[in-house]
Write a protein that binds this DNA or RNA. Structure first.
Lengths: 232, 232
DNA sequence: AGCCACTCAGGTACGCTGTTCGCAACGAAC
DNA sequence: GTTCGTTGCGAACAGCGTACCTGAGTGGCT
């Protein structure tokens, strides 16, 4: 302390060793960024900036951006927690609805999942819960597995469809009105071409059901089919 | 009003007076690159190199990489061509199988679709075909639309699951054996933890069915469910 | 023939990305 | 006090999408 530099401003700014960004903080921050700004906006620099740390520091905790995505996916799946009542139909519906909510709450999720096996702890827990829900159907685990795969596949598929328009809208950077104004004429043109009679009927005559109703309808179909097969 | 169309398909193609790297050649080249090397390897420079042209030249025919992806998706869907016999079940199965084949033939497809509305000419044609296939079920177009959405959602979902492991394997750059050797111990550990009894049963007792069988089983469920709901 | 208007290929450059390397600063152990 | 492993991170690299601009080539006009 004796020979402290006399001029404060002559001192270089030594790195004050900021607080360490743990894996969990990194993942959580990445998730909020992806939630609010979309997957393309999620860069390592962006995460580091949000955390107030250096970019390179992240690589002490996460091997790569790809790994970070894997961690994000599993983290987000951890929010689900279904209880098993023994009524396979109700339980599977509950699992399906939870998966749907998660996918909708994190619009980037459906785009991040393809190409990655779901082997994280939370993915496994969810899978386990789904299997347990379907287990009362039969003792044949192969059948149960098939049922679970089918239900989860359906859920992922519908929600992906449901999100498509929303995502495209966001990507284009337009407001909802601007978007519809730019899509409308194209659709009208398609209809007027006369080449897509069923599609036209769907657009014109079809009742505009909410995404939730569409989801429940399809889910009902799948579960009905399962019930039919199980009782054979 | 400046009606700048946001949809690629709404933009009319300019007619190149001179023969040059046309849109079709660009799209086709991009598809082969994505097929053989994966989506991440698909860069504008890579496409230009393959075509023997300058990178910047591509932008005369394609507005952006994103637009190129839209065009690729629609191009690839053009290969499908289902005929309608009037037997809704057989016809829907045929549509479903064709969609599956397409998704498998182009492993990048399932990862490129999320976030994009399917409004291209070929997407519409396929949707039209699916609606026509389901039309004999009932006169209620809303019901028909729901059915088609459910079936296509299921197909997309299962194939995405089916591709997950394959894609991860490719991403890791390992051979099939190396991959299995690296995953195996982890799975064993998961099983031995005892926390996932149903999952363990599935792995140990479950019959290992082929991807095709899994697909057909789930498809059967969905169609059975539809049949049950239609007859009510 | 000479000129203009125009199209279009493509080199260059900018700002961004993921990721690596090596150094500086620290806490603990000796 | 010295050493040593650990940790934060500035700087740099290769590669990306793409906007800008130059120059070459073409067709129609005078």
């Amino acid at each position: 302390m004796a020979d402290e530099p006399t001029l404060v401003w002559a001192k270089e700014r030594r790195s004050p060793r900021r607080q360490a960004p743990s894996v969990e903080r990194i993942v959580r921050t990445a998730i909020t960024i992806a939630d609010t700004e979309g997957l393309p906006a999620l860069s390592m620099r962006r995460v580091a900036a949000e955390l107030g740390s250096g970019t390179a520091s992240l690589y002490r905790y996460v091997a790569s951006r790809d790994d970070l995505l894997d961690l994000m996916i599993d983290e987000v799946k951890g929010a689900e927690d279904a209880e098993v009542t023994g009524d396979w139909r109700a339980d599977l519906m509950s699992v399906a609805r939870q998966v749907r909510t998660t996918l909708l709450r994190h619009p980037w999720l459906s785009g991040a999942i393809p190409g990655r096996p779901a082997l994280g702890a939370n993915s496994l827990r969810r899978h386990e819960a789904a299997l347990a829900a379907a287990a009362p159907l039969t003792g044949d685990i192969t059948f149960v597995a098939g049922v679970v795969d089918a239900v989860l596949a359906y859920v992922f598929g519908t929600v992906t469809q449901e999100l498509a328009e929303l995502q495209a809208q966001r990507r284009s950077g337009l407001t909802k009105e601007q978007w519809q104004a730019s899509v409308g004429p194209y659709i009208r043109e398609v209809i007027e071409s006369g080449e897509y009679p069923q599609f036209s009927r769907r657009v014109i005559e079809g009742v505009d059901r909410s995404a939730e109703e569409v989801f429940e309808f399809g889910l009902g179909c799948v579960l009905d089919g399962i019930a039919a097969r199980a009782s054979r």
